[in-house]
Simulated scan of single mutants.
Amino acid sequence: MYSSNASDGYPQKPGASAPPPPPPVDGIPVQPMNQSYANFGGPNNPLPPAGLQARPINNMPWSSGLFSCFDDVPTCCLSFWCPCITFGRIAEIADHGSVSCPVHGAVYTVIALLTGCACCYSCFYRTKMRQQYQLQEDPCADCLVHFCCESCALTQEYRELERRGFDMSIGWQMNMERQNRGIPMAPVPPGGMMR
């Protein structure tokens, strides 16, 4: 009496038209993947399908602007005259101490001397740091920021880590020991530090 449609396994009423075939699979997920982990599981936002993971949005603003270099004159001067030191300190913190500041500084210096373009190396650490702290890619792509103004980029990254409670002059290991001894790291107010 009822015909069976092989595509869905349910019997069909006589004279009823078959449902349209499902759309072809093109590899593009139906649900956007740029939602924060905290947004999943609510009544209006079900958990993502198995096998798909949501990626957090990189939307946190930097604690200071790219061209706010003169808000911190000592760091600005260090970044301009000795960028290898500034970069080495930033990279050690971004790498969680797996490679020391002097090694990063030496690699930066060698690249700068051989190619004159150490920004090709330092921009990768800006990206790494941005991903760790979910910071915006602002005002443009990381490589362009470092290529156009290496000193300003290094100064901004250095200040960001300081405002997150790191004492940049003591390195990753000493910062972790200081934190484990119970010496609190300076909290960062939501809008950055104010004077």
Rank of each mutant, 00 (worst) to 15 (best):
Y2R: 15
S4L: 14
N5K: 05
N5D: 15
N5L: 12
Q12M: 13
K13T: 10
P14R: 03
P19Q: 10
P20G: 09
V30Q: 04
Q31C: 12
P32M: 00
M33N: 12
Q35P: 03
A38K: 06
A38F: 10
A38V: 10
G41E: 05
G41M: 10
G42S: 14
P43G: 03
N45P: 02
P46Y: 04
L47H: 04
L47D: 13
G51F: 03
L52Q: 09
L52T: 05
L52C: 07
Q53K: 08
A54E: 07
A54I: 04
R55L: 02
P56E: 02
P56W: 00
I57Q: 04
N58C: 07
P61H: 01
W62I: 04
S63F: 09
G65Q: 13
S68C: 13
S68F: 07
S68D: 15
F70W: 15
D71R: 14
D72E: 14
P74S: 02
T75I: 14
T75P: 00
C76I: 01
L78I: 09
L78D: 11
T86C: 10
F87E: 04
A94F: 01
A94D: 00
S100L: 05
C101R: 05
V103S: 01
Y108A: 04
Y108Q: 01
T109W: 14
V110H: 12
L113F: 14
G116L: 00
C117T: 13
C120V: 11
Y121C: 01
C123M: 08
F124R: 02
F124L: 03
M129D: 00
M129P: 03
M129A: 06
Q132Y: 03
Q134I: 03
Q134H: 13
Q136C: 11
Q136N: 07
P139V: 09
P139E: 14
C143D: 11
C143V: 08
V145Y: 05
H146R: 03
H146D: 11
C148L: 15
C152A: 14
A153E: 13
A153T: 04
T155M: 09
T155R: 14
E157I: 05
R159D: 07
R163G: 00
R164T: 01
D167E: 07
I170W: 03
W172R: 06
Q173R: 13
N175P: 12
R178A: 06
Q179V: 09
M185P: 10
P190N: 09
G191L: 09
G192Y: 08
M194K: 08
